[in-house]
Design a protein around this nucleic acid. Structure first.
Lengths: 345, 345
DNA sequence: CTGTTAGCGCGTTCAG
DNA sequence: CTGAACGCGCTAACAG
């Protein structure tokens, strides 16, 4: 015979229970928790708080959301949370959100465009204040249009959509200035004495990878140099991509190169392994530069020359954009970091 | 004069709007979306779906949660999402949750016990199906008791609390068997010919670090060896901790050591840097082993001997425990991985 | 199969 | 300052 005080799985405690325990009306209890504080007599306030503590009351956020018409949630969509690039962005998002009193819901696309669309639909149901698209999607134009439609509908109902490095979608966006960073990297490398460059370029579609390639080539062009098209190898945007690419360079091409630029750090790390397999050591035989300045790689040897993106700032900026009515774009400044993998020559 | 069709920030679309557009009652519209499918005439079903598409309707998850009395959310609390240990657990949690049709809310404690408690309170308001405590908290007994109280109240209202490697709190828990893993590591190292061991031990409080130290010493004891207390150095559970610890060993102690066990991989990596500063190279001058088998470290040189915890499985197991009425504990088997940092001697 | 009614937990009028 | 009444968006019961 389970009593009403039965310990397991009893009915959740509601504000009505608290009010009864405190001997006041539910309305007063509600005001005690979130009314303008001065509107409820102090004696009652204390009794309500005591009752809440005694019953271990926790408000029902869903019910609050329904009546208030908005939530205290931010939704974050990323490709892969084990990738430091995304986990640092996520860290920035979570920190900034918590500072603003908001919770963060995270979903992972695994770089699958269909999944991305579904997840945005799920997100919409949650009525988050903002949806932040952190990952670079690689889908068809049609999928892209569906995504834009979904986000547009979301904004029409009062939410804000924020993209990282995808301003072309037409929503609020955090601009990473990859083009500028890669160009600056190229110029610095030339100053160090490098002249003949190869590129491990990532996938062909428009996106982060292409921007970095374009920027690097622009930077070289600005000092009168250029990259031999045969020395540009396409590959996956991952460690394996860099590893494979390093092994694909024709021998006669690689012999003429004094530096390879991999469009992100993970690919650069893979390239080191791939080059080693060919008997080439970094930087003795060939120099190497990456992009992102992923934290766990800063202590590898040789330490990697790269372009730092302040990823936590990127996450924080996304949240700020997602809470601001006016600002529609945030600028992030990349910073070239020269290390051991590209000694002066 | 803003019309009701005004494009910016119009009133959110509700199921009533969809029903009207489709020419049916709200109840029928509701059934069209989640009724047992056969209960609504196909013609009406199509009209409702068409209306929903036309209006870009997205259900209100909060309203659904209120009436259904439960949500489709799982809450995850971790110390630091940029730490690969936690991001891999998070990846497992998110993947398993998505497979079960659930969303994941993530919060980060930054290893602050007060913050942890607050965050659990926020979590409770969301009424998640489960709260997963992934981080090892380092707080006072009082804080620990508050946490237990909060989680107990959560379970009383129907949720499930799951801890990773903290069975002593009395909730569902995923057991990492750190003691066993560390003992096995010790035995394997002895088999490789090592005899004199130092330990970089992490913080003193009970928890993961202490378990690993105890396990390692037990493993040595089982083959008749032991660790000189002077060769056990306490430090922070981080790269810096390992770095500092490596510099703290008294010279006469370190001269007699042939291997150092750092209680996690990040500390081991820091130790490599710290040892290098003393002119000691790994593994030529001294061997080194870690724990966790953090993914981004697998390609460093020298590659690190360690104990692999299948962290993604840990996350997945947490979710399963959090959805299961009966199971209260999941066992994870650690696996010793011998690599270049501990050559046979 | 469908519409009407009721009510989930809560915040907010509107009278006192 | 307080309580009663109402409504948020939605689903579950109950009739038809």
């Amino acid at each position: 015979m389970p009593t009403r005080d039965s310990k397991r799985a009893s009915r959740p405690v509601t504000i009505v229970d608290v009010a009864r325990e405190a001997g006041v009306s539910p309305a007063t209890a509600s005001r005690a928790f979130n009314g303008s504080a001065r509107t409820v007599r102090d004696a009652n306030l204390q009794r309500v708080l005591a009752a809440a503590a005694k019953l271990s009351y926790a408000p029902n956020a869903s019910a609050q959301a329904v009546v208030r018409g908005d939530t205290s949630t931010v939704a974050l969509l990323i490709s892969d949370i084990t990738d430091p690039y995304f986990s640092w962005i996520a860290a920035g998002v979570i920190e900034a959100a918590e500072n603003a009193g908001l919770q963060v819901t995270v979903a992972v696309t695994n770089r699958n465009a269909d999944r991305e669309l579904d997840l945005v639909r799920y997100f919409r149901a949650q009525r988050p204040r903002a949806i932040i698209i952190g990952g670079s999607r690689a889908g068809s134009d049609e999928r892209s249009r569906d995504l834009v439609n979904e986000l547009t509908a979301f904004e029409r109902s009062g939410g804000k959509a924020v993209t990282v490095s995808q301003g072309e979608l037409g929503f609020r966006s955090v601009n990473l200035n990859d083009r500028k960073g890669a160009a600056e990297l190229a110029r610095r490398l030339v100053h160090l004495g490098y002249q003949s460059f190869g590129i491990i370029a990532g996938p062909l579609e428009p996106g982060v990878a292409s921007e970095r390639v374009a920027g690097f080539e622009e930077g070289l062009a600005s000092v009168g140099l250029q990259v031999d098209p045969d020395a540009v190898v396409r590959s996956a945007f991952s460690w394996e991509g860099g590893y494979d690419a390093a092994r694909v360079f024709p021998q006669e091409v690689i012999d003429g190169l004094d530096l390879i630029f991999a469009v992100n750090d993970m690919m650069a790390l893979g390239a080191i392994a791939g080059l080693r397999l060919r008997g080439l050591s970094v930087p003795a035989d060939i120099a190497l530069a990456g992009y992102d300045d992923i934290a766990p790689l800063r202590d590898t040897s040789p330490s990697l020359t790269t372009v730092r993106i302040p990823l936590k700032d990127v996450g924080a900026a996304s949240v700020l954009l997602g809470l601001d009515d006016d600002e529609r774009v945030a600028m992030i400044e990349p910073l070239v970091v020269i290390r051991d993998s590209t000694p002066r020559r």
